[in-house]
Amino acid sequence: MSVVATEMPSTSGLGYSHSNAPEQVASSIRQDDQLEIRIEFGGGLHLLFSQKPKYTIHIPRTIPSTSQHTNVKYLIQWMKENILSEREEMFIDGDTVRPGILVLINDADWELEGELDYELQNRDEVVFISTLHGG
C-alpha cells in the first residue's frame, strides 16, 4: 500500500512551506473539507483508467452544491469526469457501474454496504473488478 508522505498524519504539524513544495504535491494535500479515497482496479479495468491500477484521490466531503455526504454514486460520477480515460460504456451504466463489475468497499462486497448510497469515509478503499473477461 502506498501512501504519499505528505498525507501521513505524522507530517501534518511540520508545516510545509509553499516555496519548496511542488505544486502538484501541495494540491494533493487533503483539505479538511475533502476525503482521501484509495481506488484500485482489477480484472483489466485499469485499461480504462490510463492503465493505472491504483489511484489515491481527494474528493469533496459533501456533494458539491448540496449538503449531502459524498457517497459511492458521486464517486462513480467523479471518476467518470476525472479519471476515466476511455470507453465510458465499459464502466458506466446510467448512474452506476456496468453489470458484471464487482465493487468492494474496504474489502467488503458493496451489496452489504448500501451500494451507491454508501457514505464514504476518509481513507476508504474502493476496489472495482471486472468479471466480463474470459476465464
Binding site: G44, L102, D107, H133
Partner: peptide, 15 residues
C-alpha cells in the same frame, strides 16, 4: 472472482 481476490490468486484478465 471474489475467491480469487480474497485468496490473492494471480490471474490474467485482458479481453
Amino acid at each position: 472472482v471474489m475467491y480469487a481476490y480474497f485468496k490473492k490468486l494471480t490471474y490474467f484478465s485482458t479481453e
